[in-house]
Design a protein around this nucleic acid. Structure first.
Lengths: 341, 341
DNA sequence: TTTTAGCACTCCTCACGTTAGAGTGCTAAT
DNA sequence: ATTAGCACTCTAACGTGAGGAGTGCTAAAA
């Protein structure tokens, strides 16, 4: 679908004006603020055309125009300016990664906090899924009488742990079991790990069987665990400053969807990256509460599997800026998670 | 401050009616719904007295009455019915703790989620602070070239970890360092640990010095880390169904205060348990956004230090129920965290 | 002395009507 | 093909007035 130059210009003007003010845009405003060398009447005619083609909507018969989802889509695909952020902002983001945080989770939380603050949208990071990840280390550690701590480290540096029951055993024995588990589990993706562990379980009919069974249970929990557990979000309150959320009920639905993670999950699980930061606009989000929202997100590689970082804002968000920031974070996260190689 | 029997009865009726409906309560309503054997006119007189004494407020000259903070306070201190929850609910809470969750953090998250859902208030758990805690184990594990994972287990079963740089070293060496750290760090409270570790640092001028320094850094981070990191919350959206949050701006302030944890922290850090589940009502919360809220929270023992569990709801919350549920959770958490002894 | 009925009064809520203003679509002129 | 002019539409804001709930006060009853 291609639009003639002038229509495209008018569409751009309307989108940008609407993003700025949040109000419907009239023909006079377009003529005044963006001097295209044509009169309001001409613009009105073009706007009528654009509306008929589905790029614009009218809240009511005699109001200005508002971009439709299709209008935003065209804007995003064809008209998006390249430059989105200032060098200072870019430096700010970089500084996050330079800070002396050694704990992966803390870093992700910090990034989410900072980015949401900088953009005043909702920022989120979805940790790499454990299905496709591999593990670098597993250890069995004495914790207290009858208990041991299982610690497992993913290739991306995420650490998970749980307590299991163990029979009284010497340190050497525990190391033996640790090593045995390491051999079977390390560098194998999680979906295959349980099979291999089961095999091990058959071979080991000894006293360690109980331990292995518990570890399997643990691994299974990890992979089945809803991804909400590794979803970091920040800046929920930001969304409320948007005029489209003056209605309390909408806000409540939104909060609910945010809190249980269903909003972000639904949207992100479907679609694979078509464009680099992927963008879904309004109705494209499928969820009812997503109708007024847009999501810009990118994928980063962490170990063998992938994580996602994104921004969630009103449909009339600053797409250029959002795209630039997401892109930047993506890059930096990729760098960060390649510390290993 | 003591109230004569009849005034107390009327106050109770007003509080309970207002909690139920959210509307100002008139004299007729009190007379009709709670048959105290007196006429509306008498009740009006008593209500005028109660208002003058500060137990009741009037939204405007010719409306019914609403309990003031002082009114709620009296109700909570003197009039609170004992029985607050049904046996089913109590069983439900217990079942949470019986489930096969072995990871402390997951359990806490699950409890928060379930309790917030059951009460439709906001539920929160503040993990035990690391200042006063002691540690049961510390381990140094090989992670990848030049890196090691430090894993530390608190007496309550919380696990923290971070990656540090290490020179190439054999497994035996690493165990040696692990043991050395264990001797110095285990069973000592965190504020003393850093001193002892520093001593160690002086003795060990060898190649391990760098490692010890990093561990000290890690421990210091843990204790300085804002408690937000160990604050689990759920049910934010619940608060919005309360009519007192029809105003978007209030909601936004509230969300902001919830998200950065300042609301709950401010309130909880001050006061030490005076009554078992402690209750702070409206203005007692000091924060501006806390004016319309009440908090009911209790303390549980986890290892050497304490955590807190509570509910945050509108001032016109069901206090009896909230108290009962908090009390129950407190008990169960205490039980849970005594697995060790 | 305490309680109650009666009544005038206050204030809120809601529905309705009116007005001002912004923006459109259409027509006729350029 | 573009533009000026104009009638028309719709919203947002304000004002008005009726209806209703609840009060405080006064005077009578217990």
């Amino acid at each position: 679908m291609i639009l003639d130059e002038r229509k495209a210009q008018i569409l751009r003007a309307i989108v940008e004006d609407h993003v700025r003010t949040g109000l419907p845009v009239g023909s006079r405003a377009v003529a005044r603020r963006y001097k295209l060398g044509i009169s309001p009447a001409t613009i009105r005619n073009e706007m009528a055309d654009l509306e008929e083609m589905g790029y614009l909507d009218k809240p009511h018969t005699s109001s200005g125009r508002v971009p439709s989802d299709k209008g935003y889509r065209f804007y995003v695909d064809q008209l998006l300016p390249e430059t989105g952020i200032t060098p200072e902002e870019s430096l700010f983001v970089e500084s996050l990664f330079r800070s002396k945080i050694r704990d992966v989770v803390s870093l992700l939380k910090e990034v989410v906090r900072a980015v949401s603050e900088a953009t005043s949208y909702l920022a989120f990071i979805l940790g790499p899924d454990y299905e496709t990840t591999t593990f670098k280390a597993i250890h069995l550690l004495p914790a207290s009488f009858g208990k041991a701590l299982v610690v497992i480290v993913s290739d991306a540096g995420f650490v998970e742990s749980c307590l299991i029951d163990v029979p009284p055993m010497s340190r050497e024995e525990m190391e033996y079991v640790s090593d045995m588990l390491s051999r079977e589990i390390c560098n194998v993706s999680l979906d295959k790990v349980t099979d291999r562990a089961h095999e091990l379980l058959h071979k080991e009919t000894s006293r360690y069987a109980e331990i292995i069974a518990q570890v399997i249970e643990f691994l299974r929990n990890m992979s089945s665990e809803t991804e909400t557990e590794r979803l970091y979000m920040g800046g929920t309150a930001n969304l409320l400053s948007q005029p489209e959320f003056r209605d309390i009920n909408k806000v409540q639905d939104l909060l609910l969807a945010i809190e249980n993670g269903s909003l972000i999950q639904n949207i992100i699980s479907r679609r694979n990256r078509e464009s680099d930061p992927a963008i879904t606009i309004g109705q494209e989000n499928e969820t009812e509460v997503g109708r007024d929202l847009s999501i810009v997100y990118g994928v980063f590689k962490a170990g063998k599997s992938e994580g996602r970082i994104g921004l969630l804002g009103p449909k009339r968000m600053n797409y250029a800026r959002a795209v630039a920031i997401v892109k930047l974070c993506e890059e930096k996260l990729n760098e960060f998670f390649s510390w290993d190689e």
